[in-house]
């Protein structure tokens, strides 16, 4: 067995978290969950401050006198006014700015990715894979066509085919989810058996 405190702590918290599924909701699980949430939040705050806010303030504002950088800081601080009722309306200003910039950003940047996806669906129909791909794209688009009621037989057939393609896609996604979840368990078991108990080769 490993002698390091870090390994023992990791083993304790791993087992504590697994008690929820292998036993039931209990105080050990609650303790482990709370510690994890606390550490994650603290880690995020400390890293953001030391690795970004502090050097940006030190270099951009104090050293290089880029005072325009103060504007986003002020906008950010204005968000907190929502906690003070009489001046809570102030928080709407940065929110409005944020929504405006966000919408403009989506309009400018998203078409590049969107159009390239459309272009990629224009394939030569000389391979079975390409044929399946193009038929699948059209059938799924028809499935999501809600403008008019679909009554004609060809359209109904296309929506049924679209649904079949979607179900295959959901099946693949579900299988990938299983694969990832098994990987999580695998990682913890590798740690417990190899690093902690040392009954398996590394």
């Amino acid at each position: 067995m490993s002698a390091t405190l870090q390994t023992w702590l990791s083993a304790f918290f791993t087992i504590a978290i697994y008690t929820l599924v292998l036993y039931k909701d209990n105080k050990v699980f609650r303790f482990a969950e709370t510690v994890m949430i606390g550490i994650t939040a603290a880690n995020g705050i400390v890293l953001t401050y030391h690795n970004y806010i502090k050097p940006v303030v030190a270099v951009d504002i104090i050293q290089n006198h880029k005072y325009l950088q103060l504007i986003p800081i002020v906008l950010g601080l204005m968000m907190y006014t929502r906690f003070v009722k009489p001046i809570a309306w102030v928080s709407r200003i940065p929110m409005g700015f944020w929504v405006g910039v966000g919408a403009a950003y989506i309009l400018v940047r998203n078409p590049g990715v969107f159009i390239s996806q459309i272009t990629a669906s224009f394939l030569a129909l000389n391979k079975l894979n390409n044929l399946i791909f193009v038929v699948g794209v059209i059938a799924v688009v028809v499935y999501f066509y809600f403008t008019v009621p679909i009554k004609s037989a060809p359209m109904k057939g296309a929506t049924t085919l679209g649904k079949a393609f979607l179900l295959v896609s959901f099946g693949a996604t579900f299988a990938s989810t299983v694969m990832s979840r098994i990987s999580l368990l695998l990682g913890r078991l590798q740690f417990l058996l190899q690093d902690w108990l040392r009954i398996a080769k590394v």
């Binding site: 990715v113 996806q117 896609s169 990938s176 694969m179 990832s180």
Partner: peptide, 17 residues
């Protein structure tokens, strides 16, 4: 990426991006 996110990212690989 992880297996769970691979289906979401796959269209961008198929399109050559």
């Amino acid at each position: 990426t992880t297996a769970i996110q691979a289906p979401t990212e796959m269209p961008f690989y198929s399109s050559g991006e």
